[in-house]
Design a protein around this nucleic acid. Structure first.
Lengths: 243, 243
DNA sequence: CCGGATCCGAATCGATACTG
DNA sequence: CAGTATCGATTCGGATCCGG
């Protein structure tokens, strides 16, 4: 079984052996949002084969990255250990790095609640959030070709960023599963977007342009807040355009 | 061929598609030290199959991470693009993260010059370097079971860290390949270690203990500099011990 | 429905050999 | 030096099945 080892005594190599297998880091990404049940993970990673999911979860547990936690009368969840949670800055940095190379979505690409949550975290500008007044958004994104929208409640304040996942029909999701539902009151701005929201975050499009080109539509509330949103969530192209 | 896609429109996913294949990030690690020829990479990654190396290099070029640069009359080298170089903080962070989980080396694990160079970079404490007087080390590490030692010239100053790879026999390596050979004069301390040097860097062992337990031996120069070395290169265990 | 285990064809990886 | 070519060993992907 050492045939699969890279044969080097090195920290990077060790890290890659722990989380470098296919799908592993995407499982970690989703668990960074909160504890998840097996079925949640499967839904959030629609293309993962179920045997791979269970194999990875077993490996990640053995590495001390993930923990299996039984819930009283409610099944069980997987969650990151403290050691696993230390991957957060790395996953966020990778998300920023990969963002630059995202083209347009493939025909059958989906946007899941967890991936969008992490995407907003990667794009979040703490400095802008403290400099600007707080804001409370509800963001709808067309998730998959097969209809399911992702709805996120996004609350920005000087304290930081809070994101809760909202069931398209009604109330925020199960409080037991980490995404706190203490989203009292109504959002100040409700808007809907497609995958083209990427071009707002990259700065390719101003909010006004985005609305004009219909990559974005204000559903309710104060449309001028779009400007603040665009300043709060931004990933600068940086060197990346050279590619 | 989209069967290998993760099917998500997400920055993390994109990043993993670019550099998540087996061996890819280790190639990037070595290229972060400097441009490398095909043969150098093969030597630095002793267990990589040659077809995988050439496949990865092709993929990394297509992703704009790696560039192929012909050298006048001297073959050609691969080097990171500016976009690829943006992976540096990520690879360093991964190295620190993985460091915590490194046990003792497997019987046939090797330590290569490039991996050790990056390991020292991950462990480097800029704050300690500015607070302490400069220092100039030569570090010998037993690389592989089959004898080849890795020799590094490690120069620490308030300006930062400089590491050059030295041919065990004589002079520093080819200046054309990025590792500058301007290592004038003699090092202040020459010492030799095995893989147990990890326990010095983790703080498990003090320099005195390390010498006592023979994981480390002073070859020449001022032995008290070991203390400074241990303060300059350190990866705190952090939360990781819980695992 | 939840939490997987099992089976099997397709694609990838690993080891070695070989070439311009 | 810088890779291709080949081929068996693994792993992955997709589907199905199963116990609670």
């Amino acid at each position: 079984m050492a045939s699969r080892s890279y044969g080097q005594y090195c920290g990077v190599t060790t890290a890659v052996e722990l989380i470098g297998e296919r799908w592993a880091l995407l499982i970690v990404r989703d668990l960074l949002v909160g504890p998840r049940r097996y079925t949640d993970l499967k839904q959030g990673l629609p293309k993962i084969p179920t045997n791979i999911l269970s194999t990875r979860l077993k490996e990640l547990q053995e590495s001390g990255v993930v923990r299996r936690v039984p819930l009283l009368h409610c099944g069980l969840v997987y969650e990151l250990t403290p050691y696993g949670r230390e991957l957060e800055p790395i996953v966020l940095a990778l998300g920023r790095w990969g963002f630059a190379q995202m083209g347009d979505p493939q025909p059958d690409d989906v946007v899941t609640a967890d991936s969008l949550t992490m995407a907003l975290r990667t794009a979040f500008r703490g400095d802008a959030a403290t400099a600007l007044p707080p804001a409370d958004y509800e963001l709808h994104v067309a998730g998959s070709p097969d209809g399911g929208d992702v709805v996120l409640r996004v609350q920005v304040s000087a304290d930081g960023l809070r994101i809760a996942q909202v069931q398209p029909a009604g109330r925020p999701v199960d409080p037991k599963l980490g995404t706190q539902a203490s989203t009292a009151g109504d959002p100040e701005l409700v808007f809907a977007a497609g995958p083209g929201i990427r071009r707002l975050i990259s700065g390719e499009l101003t909010p006004a342009d985005a609305v004009d080109q219909e990559v974005l539509a204000v559903v309710a509330g104060d449309a001028t807040l779009l400007e603040r949103f665009a300043q709060t969530f931004r990933i600068e192209p940086g060197v990346m355009l050279v590619a």
